[in-house]
Design a protein around this nucleic acid. Structure first.
Length: 934
RNA sequence: GGGCGGUUAGCUCAGUUGGUUAGAGCGCCUGCCUUACAAGCAGGAUGUCGGGGGUUCGAGUCCCUCACUGCCCACCA
C-alpha cells in the first residue's frame, strides 16, 4: 500500500496531510463515505469486464443457475424489484464465491396487454386508432417503442450492481424464443392437449380480448338483487292471468339472452311449473322452465334465469338441457342485434332502460340491496363480461398431474413451505387454460383457417395448402398467445430449446426460482407444468432418459415477501406512497438500500420499508469506510518505516485480540454460510453487521491500535498489521454479497490496486474451519470485556470526567489477575484507567465498587455519595439476584426436572445459581457497609 | 363459503427443532468534538411476549379457544 493509492481511495487524505493541517481543514470537505463517488464506476466495470459471464462447463462444480423473473418491457424498477434483485444477487454472489459456475439470466417480457395498451395510448394521443393504423403498422410501432424505451429496468439493474450475465439477455419476442413458442404450441396440439371451442370466457370489453381466470380480480361490491316476474304461459301459448314465475338477478340486462328459467327439482313451490313455458318479458320469447339441481331453493326466489351466452353456470345448465345460447352483447359490451330495441346500448344503459320498461309493465318485483363480488380486468379495472366465444385452450389436467407429482415427490421444494399447500390447492382445482388473446402484440397462434373447408391446419411453418382438403386459400389465425404461455417455457427456451444445446444440458434445471407469491399461479405453476411436460422428452447430458426429478424447471422456489411502506401499506400509485428505489439509492447509496432490504428480509414477513433504517445502514457503510481509513493510514505509516504488509503471511499475530478476532471471524463465517443456505437473509445481514461494527471496530480495532508502533518493537507491529489487514480483507469478502460496491472499492485498495482477482466477487467466500476451537481465548476475551465494560459503567456512575483517568483496584482469581496484568495496556486504554492493583480487600465505599461473577472492581474517585440512591441501586440488584436465585433453586429442587432436563441445562442452571448466590452475598455486604457509612 | 398468515419495548421488527436472566435497529435519557468515524464514542431506561385455558420438569415457542387484523382462493343467480 503506497501513499499514492491511499490518496486515490481517500482523496481527503491529501488535505489531511497537507500543510494546511487539521485545525484549518475546510468544513466542506466531508470525511464521510460518498457512495456516489464510487458506485457508477464499479457498476460499469462489472458490466464492461463481463465478470459475471458464465459458460457451460466452466467448472466441475454443480452450476448454480437462476432465471430473472422477466419484468415487463414497459416496466420501471420499483422497490419490489429491487428487493427481489437484492435477495437474488446476494445468493448469486455468494454461490459464485463458493466457486460454483454461477449464472443469472436476465431478460424482459413482451407483456401483451400492458405493452399494447401503452402504445395504443400513444397512437390515440396522435388522434389515430390502432385499427386505422392496421395490424402490421401497429406492431411496427410497438417494436419502435421497445427500441427506444424498452428495458429501462435492465439498465437500472446494471446501475444497482445485479451480477447477471448480460450476454444472455433475452426478450420473449426474440426470434429464437418465438420459434420455441411455436414448437411448444404445435407439439401440444399434436399431443391432443390443445383444443379450440366456444365456451364462456372472461371478456374485457375495453381490451377487447379474452382473459384467463387469473387475470380477473374479484371485488366486493354493494349491488342490487332485482326480482322480475316472468308470465307463465298456458295451454294455448297465452299468458295465464296472474300467473308468474319470479326470478332474481343481479344482471337484468342479460335477460335479453335468456333461454330458460331453472328451478331446483326438489323445490315444492315450483314443481307444478316443470315443463311449462314462460314468456320472456320485453323480448316476447317463449322459454321453458327447467329443473336443475344446481339451483339452490333458498337463494333469492329459488328461480334462476338462464343465459348460457353470458354466464358460466348458465352455460353449464344450457349444456345439460340442450338449450341454445343467444349472445346479446358485442366485443365492447354493447347490446347487439339480438337485443331487439336495446341494440346499440351500453350494458349499463341497457340495464337502466330494461328496469324502467319492466317497471312500466308491472313486472319488476322487490329490489334488495345485495353485496356480491364482481370480476374486473387485472390490467384496466374494467368490469369483465362472461361471454361465449371461440378460444384456444390447453387441456391442463395431464400437465397438472405431473406438476403435482413433482412437488409431492420433493423434486421441487418451496420456501416458506406453506406455499406448497397453496400450490396444491390451486393445482388440484385447476381449469383448462384459455391461451388465446384477441390482441395484436404477442406470439401469433400458428394455425391457419381454410376458406374452402373451414378446417384448421396447425403447423410450424406457414403451410402451402390445407392439410384437410388441399385448398391453398389459407389465412392465419389472428389471435395471439397469452403472454404467460411464452414465459412459462422460459426455463428451457432461454437455453436454446427445442435445440439440444450445451447450455440446456448444463444449466437445466435451474437451481432456484426467487419470486413473489403474486405470480405463483400465473408463472411458477405454469413453468412447472410446462417444464415437466416438455423436458421429460429431452435426454440428459449423458444421453440417458430424463426422469421427472430432472425435468422440473427448478429445484427450489423461494417466495419472497412484499415491500410495503413504513406504515405497512401496500405501495400503490393511487395512494401516492410509492418509494422510488432510485431516489433512495441516490440519497443513501445502493449498498445501504440493499443492506436495509436484506436485513429486513425475514422469510414470510412483509417488509415495512423505512428510510430511517437505511440511514442506519448508510452509517454502517461509513463506519467501514472509516475503519479502512484507519487501517490504510497505518499501512502508510508502516511503509514509511520500510515495513510492507504481507497478506499471504502464514504467521499471524499471537496476541489475545488477534486470536479472538480470528475466532469470531471463523464463527461468523460459519453462521453466515448456514443462514444464507436457508434464505435467512436478515440473520446473515445482522451477523455481518454485528461482527464488523461490534467485534471488529469496537473491540479489535481499538485494541490493535496499541500494537501499531513501528518505531519500536517493529516485529510485533508488523505481525499485528498483517493480521489486521488480512482480517479486514476477509471481512470485506464476507460482506461483499450484501454491499458489493464499498467492498469492491476497499478490497482493491487493500491490494493496492493489484488484487489477486478482478473483483472481490470472484474471490472466495470465507468458510468456517470446524477445527478452530479455542475456548480459553474466548473466555479470556470475554472476561476482559466484562472488566472494561464494568469499569466504564462505574466511571459513569461516579461521574468521572471523560478525560480523567482513574485508579482501579480489583479482587479476583489469580488467573484473572494474570489476565488483567498481561493485558493492562488494553484495560487502561479502553476503560480509561491510570493503573490497577489487586488488594485482598477493598477499602472503598460500596458506591465506588461493582461486583460481577468474576471479580469485584473499585475506582478510587472521590464522589459525594448519595446514600439513598446507592441503597436503591443495591436493592434493585439484590432483587434481581434473588429472582434468578429463586428461579434456579426452584428448578434445581425439582427432582423431575433433574431427571428429565438435559445435563447441559442443569449444569448451566447450577452455575447460574452459585453465581447469583455469591453476588447476592456481596450485595448484602455492600448494603451493610452502606448502613455503617450513613 | 374455503384456506393461509400476523398480534413480542414508544416505533419497525428478530427470536431455527420448547431449555439457563426475551433481543436488534430507530427513537428516548446522560456524558463526551478521546487525531478512523458526531453518519461517531461511552453509559442508561423501557416488555403482564393480544386474552383465557391446556400439555410439559420447563411455553414467546406445542395444542384448544376467543378477540382483533392482513392476505389468497371460490360459478351462488
Amino acid at each position: 500500500m503506497e501513499r499514492g493509492r491511499l490518496r486515490a481511495v481517500f482523496p481527503f487524505l491529501a488535505m489531511l496531510s497537507s500543510e494546511v493541517g487539521l485545525p484549518g481543514m475546510p468544513q466542506e470537505l466531508h470525511k464521510a463515505y460518498d457512495p456516489a463517488a464510487i458506485e457508477d464506476r464499479w457498476a460499469a466495470y462489472w458490466v464492461n469486464e463481463r465478470l459475471f459471464h458464465a459458460e457451460a462447463g466452466d467448472s466441475a462444480a454443480r452450476p448454480f443457475t437462476m432465471l430473472l423473473p422477466p419484468p415487463n418491457v414497459t416496466g420501471n424498477l420499483h422497490m419490489g424489484h429491487m428487493f427481489e434483485h437484492t435477495e437474488t444477487d446476494i445468493l448469486i454472489r455468494w454461490h459464485r464465491m463458493l466457486g460454483e459456475t454461477t449464472l443469472w439470466v436476465p431478460g424482459t417480457d413482451h407483456a401483451g396487454i400492458a405493452t399494447q395498451m401503452l402504445v395504443e395510448r400513444q397512437v390515440t394521443s396522435e388522434g389515430k386508432t390502432r385499427q386505422q393504423l392496421g395490424r402490421e403498422a401497429f406492431i411496427e410501432r410497438v417494436w419502435q417503442w421497445r427500441e427506444h424505451y424498452g428495458g429501462a429496468i435492465l439498465e437500472q439493474m446494471k446501475r444497482l450492481g445485479a451480477s447477471v450475465d448480460w450476454s444472455r439477455e433475452y426478450f420473449t419476442m426474440d426470434e429464437g424464443l418465438s420459434v420455441a413458442v411455436k414448437e411448444a404450441f404445435v407439439r401440444l396440439h399434436e399431443q391432443g392437449l390443445i383444443y379450440r371451442g366456444a365456451y364462456i370466457v372472461n371478456w374485457c370489453p375495453r381490451c377487447q380480448t379474452a382473459i384467463s381466470d387469473l387475470e380477473v380480480v374479484h371485488e366486493e361490491q354493494q349491488g342490487k338483487l332485482w326480482e322480475i316476474r316472468y308470465p307463465v304461459l298456458g295451454k294455448h301459448g297465452k299468458p295465464e292471468t296472474g300467473q308468474f314465475l319470479t326470478i332474481a338477478t343481479t344482471r337484468p340486462e342479460t335477460m335479453l339472452g335468456d333461454v330458460a328459467v331453472a328451478v331446483n327439482p326438489e323445490d315444492a313451490r315450483y314443481r307444478h311449473l316443470h315443463g311449462k313455458k314462460l314468456l320472456l318479458p320485453l323480448m316476447d320469447r317463449e322459454i321453458p322452465v327447467v329443473a336443475d339441481s344446481w339451483v339452490s331453493a333458498d337463494f333469492g326466489t329459488g328461480a334462476v334465469k338462464v343465459t348460457p351466452a353470458h354466464d358460466a353456470n348458465d352455460f353449464a345448465i344450457g349444456q345439460r338441457h340442450g338449450l341454445k345460447s343467444i349472445s346479446v352483447m358485442d366485443d365492447t359490451a354493447h347490446i347487439n342485434a339480438e337485443g331487439g330495441k336495446y341494440a346499440g346500448l351500453d350494458r349499463y344503459v341497457a340495464r337502466k332502460r330494461i328496469l324502467k320498461d319492466l317497471e312500466a309493465q308491472g313486472l319488476l318485483g322487490t329490489v334488495r340491496e345485495h353485496t356480491n363480488s364482481i370480476g374486473k380486468c387485472d390490467r384496466c379495472q374494467t368490469v369483465v363480461e362472461p361471454r361465449l366465444s371461440t378460444q384456444w385452450f390447453v387441456k391442463i389436467q395431464p400437465l397438472a398431474d405431473k406438476a403435482i407429482e413433482a412437488v409431492e415427490q420433493g423434486y421441487i421444494k418451496f420456501t416458506p413451505a406453506q406455499y406448497a399447500k397453496t400450490y396444491f390447492e390451486w393445482m388440484r382445482n385447476i381449469h383448462d387454460w384459455c391461451i388465446s388473446r384477441q390482441l395484436w402484440w404477442g406470439h401469433r397462434i400458428p394455425a391457419w383457417h381454410c376458406a374452402a373447408c373451414g378446417k384448421i391446419t396447425v403447423a410450424r411453418e406457414t403451410p402451402a395448402v390445407c392439410e384437410h382438403c388441399g385448398n391453398a386459400n389459407l389465412t392465419q389465425e389472428t389471435d395471439v398467445l397469452d403472454t404467460w404461455f411464452s414465459s412459462g417455457l422460459l426455463p428451457f427456451t432461454v437455453f436454446g430449446w427445442p435445440k439440444r444445446t450445451r447450455d440446456l444440458d448444463n444449466f437445466y434445471p435451474t437451481q432456484l426460482l426467487l419470486t413473489g407469491f403474486d405470480i405463483l399461479f400465473f408463472w411458477v405453476a405454469r413453468m412447472i407444468m410446462l417444464g415437466c411436460h416438455f423436458m421429460s422428452d429431452v435426454p440428459m447430458a449423458d444421453g440417458s432418459e430424463r426422469d421427472l426429478k430432472d425435468a422440473v424447471p427448478f429445484r427450489e422456489v423461494y417466495i419472497h415477501a412484499l415491500v410495503r411502506d413504513a406504515d405497512r401499506q401496500k405501495m400503490s400509485k393511487t395512494k401516492g406512497n410509492v418509494i422510488d428505489p432510485i431516489e433512495i439509492v441516490q440519497r443513501y447509496g445502493t449498498d445501504a438500500v440493499r443492506f436495509t432490504l436484506a436485513a429486513m428480509a425475514s422469510p414470510g414477513t412483509d417488509i415495512a420499508f423505512s428510510a430511517a433504517r437505511t440511514e442506519g445502514y448508510r452509517a454502517f457503510a461509513n463506519k467501514i469506510w472509516n475503519a479502512a481509513h484507519l487501517i490504510f493510514m497505518n499501512v502508510d505509516r508502516a511503509a514509511e518505516a520500510g515495513i510492507h504488509v504481507d497478506l499471504g503471511s502464514e504467521n499471524p499475530a499471537n496476541t489475545l485480540e488477534a486470536r479472538w478476532i480470528a475466532l469470531r471471524l471463523n464463527a461468523v463465517a460459519g453462521e453466515m454460510n448456514q443462514a444464507l443456505g436457508e434464505y435467512r437473509f436478515h440473520e446473515a445481514a445482522n451477523l455481518v453487521y454485528q461482527f464488523f461494527w461490534g467485534d471488529f471496530c469496537d473491540w479489535y480495532l481499538e485494541i490493535v491500535k496499541l500494537r501499531l508502533d513501528f518505531s519500536d518493537a517493529a516485529d510485533k507491529a508488523t505481525l499485528a498489521l498483517n493480521t489486521l489487514v488480512a482480517t479486514f480483507e476477509a471481512a470485506l469478502r464476507l460482506l461483499s454479497p450484501f454491499m458489493p460496491f464499498i467492498t469492491e472499492e476497499l478490497w482493491h485498495a487493500v491490494y493496492d490496486g493489484k488484487p489477486p482477482a478482478k473483483s472481490v466477487a470472484l474471490s472466495q467466500y470465507p468458510q468456517a474451519n470446524a477445527k478452530v476451537v479455542d475456548a480459553q481465548t474466548e473466555a479470556e476475551m470475554g472476561q476482559l470485556q466484562e472488566l472494561i465494560v464494568t469499569i466504564r459503567a462505574l466511571r459513569k456512575d461516579l461521574e468521572v470526567p471523560e478525560r480523567e483517568l482513574a485508579a482501579a483496584e480489583i479482587q479476583t482469581s489469580a488467573a484473572m489477575q494474570r489476565l488483567a496484568s498481561d493485558n493492562h495496556e488494553i484495560v487502561q486504554k479502553l476503560a480509561r484507567v491510570s493503573a490497577f492493583t489487586f488488594p485482598a480487600e477493598s477499602k472503598l465505599n460500596p458506591g465506588n465498587t461493582r461486583t460481577t461473577a468474576n471479580f469485584n472492581v473499585g475506582l478510587a474517585f472521590e464522589k459525594q455519595i448519595d446514600v439513598a440512591a446507592e441503597r436503591e441501586r443495591l436493592q434493585k440488584k439484590l432483587e434481581q439476584y434473588e429472582k434468578v436465585l429463586g428461579n434456579a433453586d426452584r428448578q434445581l429442587n425439582n427432582e423431575t426436572f433433574l431427571a428429565k432436563a438435559p445435563e447441559k441445562i442443569v449444569a448451566g442452571l447450577k452455575k447460574q445459581a452459585s453465581e447469583a448466590a455469591s453476588l447476592r452475598q456481596e450485595t448484602l455486604d455492600a448494603i451493610e457497609k452502606l448502613a455503617q457509612l450513613a
